Simulated scan of single mutants.
Amino acid sequence: MNEFLVRRLSETERQMNNPNLRPKDAATLLVLDRREDGNHRVLMGRRHMRHRFMPGMFVFPGGRVDPADSRVPVAGDYHPGVAGKLVHAMKGPKTDARARAFTVAAVRETYEEAGLLVGSPSDLAWQGSGDMAAFSDRRLLPDLTPIRLIARAITPPRRPRRFDTRFLAVFADAVADRLPSGTGPSGELEDVHWLTLQEAKSLELPTITLTIIEELQARLADDPELDPAHPVPFYYWRGKGFVREEI
């Protein structure tokens, strides 16, 4: 059991008096701005205080995977090492479309919340619905090729909401366009900023977000190019604490 991670949980995060919901698939995107000195920056924003789930916390852009995400066309394929890790211990059908949906969801949410369009130019004639129309209008497609998996984590039982989240990463040179406002059309994230990983650790963060930042720091020190073959951590709750496995 990962007792250190359990000790970090806030009083709110320790509350386990809710119905035991089934975790929903989710994805979040760590957009990394590489620096020559190694102090890479990551894009984060603060959740609006009106949110029921983690109000006021700083997080990476991301959210729940929607059924339509599996039907959005994409550019390129995952590296086999990434694809295999994405479907590891996946509940239900282990299909290519479902694996693609994690990146589409993360890219869609990054646009909605932070105003960045992560993707590649394409001559494909397609019409995106909702916020994905911003991609088709610019003749862009979400691109699986540069995506890397950093971690997977499942929210402990009996929390108000539960997610089975893939923490994905991409370097900032994959950003094809951005809104001039510096934030996304949904307004879900405020104070969207580029922060060094060390700066990010000083913010008010969910425990798992802080843990993932530390995992990323350690990985970049050993693996600055984010080799797809590199093992990644998988956190889930068993008994009275978190288990950390490597995928």
Rank of each mutant, 00 (worst) to 15 (best):
R161L: 15
G115K: 00
A172F: 03
T110K: 01
R178G: 08
L116M: 14
L140Q: 00
F163Y: 14
E188Y: 10
G128H: 01
A125K: 08
T110P: 00
R152M: 10
V170I: 13
I147Y: 00
D123G: 14
L140W: 01
R108C: 00
P121H: 10
A125S: 15
I147Q: 00
V118H: 04
S129V: 10
T183F: 07
S136T: 08
R158M: 14
T145V: 06
G130V: 03
D143Q: 01
A174T: 02
A125C: 11
T110S: 15
L168D: 05
F167Y: 15
L124T: 06
S129K: 14
S122K: 01
S129Y: 10
P180T: 09
R152I: 04
G184V: 02
A174N: 08
T103R: 00
D164W: 03
G119C: 03
F135R: 02
E109V: 00
D164N: 13
R162M: 14
R148E: 11
T103N: 06
A105C: 12
S136R: 01
F167I: 12
V170R: 05
I150M: 12
P156V: 09
D143T: 07
R138A: 14
S181Y: 05
G115S: 06
S129T: 13
S129F: 12
V118M: 03
T145E: 10
R158P: 07
S181N: 06
S120Q: 10
A133L: 01
V107S: 04
P157A: 04
V175K: 14
A169Y: 09
A105D: 04
T155P: 05
F167C: 09
I150G: 08
S136C: 05
D177N: 10
R162T: 06
A169W: 08
T145C: 04
S186L: 07
R138L: 13
L179N: 02
I150Y: 09
L141E: 01
A174V: 00
T155K: 09
R139A: 14
D137W: 12
A105S: 15
R138Y: 02
Q127V: 13
S120F: 11
L179S: 02
L117G: 06
L140V: 05
G182V: 03
R108W: 08
S122E: 04
G184W: 00
